[in-house]
Lab assay of single mutants.
Amino acid sequence: TTVKVNGTKYKFDTPEEAQKFAKKAADKYNLKVVVDGDDLRVE
């Protein structure tokens, strides 16, 4: 599972880890998590 934040992709072994990271990033930058198929985007 990958998470894309500000054009940078981060790869995670499990969707749970990816979800946690995406949520933290979204909170930090005051953005929202967008599900894109198997991957997540923070925008």
Rank of each mutant, 00 (worst) to 15 (best):
K28G: 06
D27G: 06
N30P: 04
K11V: 14
T14A: 04
V33C: 06
D13Y: 06
K11W: 14
D36H: 06
A18D: 01
N6H: 13
D27T: 08
L40R: 02
K24G: 09
D27E: 14
V34R: 07
K20S: 12
D39L: 14
D36K: 04
V42S: 02
D13H: 09
K4W: 15
K9P: 09
G37S: 04
E17R: 05
K32I: 15
Q19R: 13
R41Y: 09
P15H: 10
D38G: 11
N30C: 14
V42A: 04
L40H: 02
D27L: 11
D38R: 12
K4N: 12
V5P: 00
D39Y: 12
F21S: 02
A25D: 02
A22M: 03
K24Q: 14
D36A: 07
E43D: 09
V33T: 03
E43H: 05
A22K: 00
Q19H: 11
A26Y: 03
T1Q: 07
L40D: 02
E16M: 08
E16T: 07
L40M: 07
N30I: 03
K23L: 08
D38Q: 12
D13L: 09
N30H: 13
A22T: 00
K28T: 07
V3L: 02
N30F: 09
E17F: 03
R41T: 09
E43V: 14
A26G: 04
N30Q: 11
A22C: 03
F21L: 02
A26D: 02
V33S: 01
V33W: 05
K4T: 15
D13N: 13
F21G: 02
R41E: 05
N6K: 07
L40Q: 02
A18P: 00
R41G: 04
Y10W: 07
F21M: 03
A18F: 01
F21E: 03
K28H: 12
D13I: 07
D39W: 09
R41M: 09
L31M: 13
G7Y: 05
V42W: 03
A22G: 01
E16R: 05
V3H: 00
V35F: 12
L31I: 06
K28F: 14
L40I: 13
T1P: 06
K20M: 12
Q19G: 07
E17L: 09
N6F: 15
Y10N: 01
T2L: 08
K24W: 15
V34M: 08
K4V: 15
V35R: 10
E17Y: 02
K20H: 10
D13P: 10
E43R: 06
E17W: 02
E16C: 03
T14I: 04
A25Y: 15
D27Q: 11
D39P: 02
G7H: 07
F12T: 00
V33R: 00
D38V: 12
Y29P: 05
K24A: 14
P15L: 14
K9D: 11
E43L: 09
N6D: 06
K23M: 09
V5M: 12
A26I: 03
V42H: 02
Y29K: 05
